[in-house]
């Protein structure tokens, strides 16, 4: 593969969206990966003497607690960093699961068509007729609280998004003559799907994956907000927002900071996904060499 990676294959590195998105996502990822090394305090360490300390830059701030403390005196920065771990775990695993199920079914449906397509299409229709929030809450109740249940709930709710959008793209690609040509030069179904169709749907797949990661972050925040995600002994962004509601008038920062973390992460995923789609698609890079 090495030598095939020519200069123009790396053209996506020149897109502003991709760079901005990658920096945001990368920062959050690093925070999540190295949280134990980065945190100034144990995120669960309570200190009831120093509760609701404002961030270091405002009046009464303490440089020891850079982003202040919450109502139980826990360090907000440390809790945010550990919250990133939960958010990233859910984002990656849940999106991966939803993508694998959705994309596989979409390719099978779009490529083979006919009865297979009908069955998968109806399954998606029925599945999508449940309101997603209700469906995930029902699932959570059935599965019980916990981070693996959150991941499973997101996978089970959101695979339809991949399936429906990708199926349309597979259908379009399937009708191209080059797919027929591949069959004529002796490609089997598996080879045709992986070598001819998958590369064509890949840009969309990457975009959807990236956007889905953003959605997963939000869903995780919602579920931890209502207390159905991680337990009280772990910190998650949604949980932090829920906790901060009590002291909203004393310390607005406690509410704003986790929201900001969610916002930045989702923005990063969306920018990255959009930028990659634009620059990975060779149909959009018209004859640059001519």
């Amino acid at each position: 593969m090495g030598k095939r990676l020519a200069r123009q294959d790396l053209a996506f590195l020149r897109s502003g969206r991709v760079i901005a998105g990658a920096i945001l996502v990368g920062t959050v990822m690093i925070c999540a990966l190295f949280a134990p090394l980065l945190v100034p305090h144990d995120p669960q360490e309570q200190n009831l003497i120093t509760t609701l300390v404002p961030p270091a830059w405002s009046a009464g701030g303490d440089p020891e607690f850079l982003l202040g403390t919450d109502s139980l005196g826990r360090d907000v920065l440390s809790r945010l960093l550990y919250g990133a771990r939960v958010a990233m775990t859910v984002a990656i695993l849940a999106s991966l699961g939803a993508m694998l199920i959705g994309a596989t079914l979409a390719h099978i449906a779009g490529y083979f068509g006919g009865k297979v397509d009908w069955v998968i299409g109806r399954a998606v229709d029925v599945w999508m007729s449940f309101p997603p929030v209700v469906l995930s809450l029902v699932l959570m109740t059935g599965l019980g609280a916990g981070i693996s249940s959150v991941i499973l709930a997101i996978v089970l709710v959101d695979w339809t998004r991949f399936c429906r959008v990708l199926r349309a793209e597979v259908l379009v690609t399937r009708r191209q003559d080059y797919v027929a040509a591949a069959r004529l030069v002796g490609f089997g179904h598996w080879r045709t799907l992986t070598r001819e169709i998958l590369p064509a749907t890949m840009p969309l797949l990457i975009t959807l994956f990236s956007i889905e990661m953003g959605i997963a972050v939000i869903v995780e925040a919602i579920l931890s907000f209502v207390g159905m995600s991680v337990g009280a002994n772990q910190s998650a962004w949604g949980q932090m927002i829920a906790d901060a509601r009590q002291t909203i008038y004393e310390s607005g920062w406690n509410l704003v900071l986790p929201m900001l973390a969610i916002f930045v992460t989702v923005l990063g995923f969306n920018l990255l996904g959009d930028g990659l789609r634009r620059s990975l698609d060779p149909r959009l890079m018209q004859a640059r060499e001519l």
Partner: peptide, 25 residues
Amino acid sequence: FQDPQSALNPRRRAASIVTQVLEAA
């Protein structure tokens, strides 16, 4: 095929397209 636009996979280089037969055979 009639329409070279649709008959050539836009994601393959010309050399890879013309030797597609070998990939399977």
